[in-house]
Amino acid sequence: MTKAKPPKGLKGWAQGRSLWMLHFCTGCGAIEMPPTMTSRYDMERFGITPMATPRQADLLLITGYLTVKTLKRVIRSYEQMPEPKYVVGFGSCTVNGGMYWDSYNTIKRLDLYLPIDLYIAGCMPRPEAIIDGFTELIEGIKKGKFDGWIRYKENLEYYKRNQAMVMDIRKWSLDAELAERIWNEVQEERRKRFERATVKHVYELAERIPEGLPK
């Protein structure tokens, strides 16, 4: 089987010039979207328009911190999007937790759970920064640089395992069989560790950060 590649040429160009985004307005960063969309900065001149449903969207925009509860919905929405699809993390919360670095109910590193194509750093990033990020995304897509969804598909097990660390993936994954299997494995692993766990261990287990991203 040939390895899936991101679109190039006409397809890549069209894909880059017409990004329809599903903005998942989770954190406070969402407040920067309206100015970016309206007359002052006007994102639409790059062909970027907000869309109502993941079915129509190419770009999943995560605007800020994600609680575990929201992560489930984000993953569901991401999996419902048709390919090629891109994820943009927005604000430092998605990079490393930002000011929520020690919060018990938000996730810290989004790229453990979803394949991030581009981060826009800042707390919160100004519209200029957003536009800058988007232009880079567009140029990258035209050249076929971003391949997040391919990484997600190829390392599905890795992502699912990470997701299973923080949430019940059985209900929220489209591929129910795989989710069931990985969920059971993770549970088994977790049960084994629990048998000789100290308080410190329990805390670690609740939020285990796996080392290193897949190659």
Binding site: R76, K171, L174
Partner: peptide, 16 residues
């Protein structure tokens, strides 16, 4: 095209 995973594989604002 991809066949819908289940009858509830619909856009419901991320809800299942």
């Amino acid at each position: 095209v991809r066949k819908a995973a289940s009858q509830t594989d619909k856009y419901l604002a991320g809800e299942v």
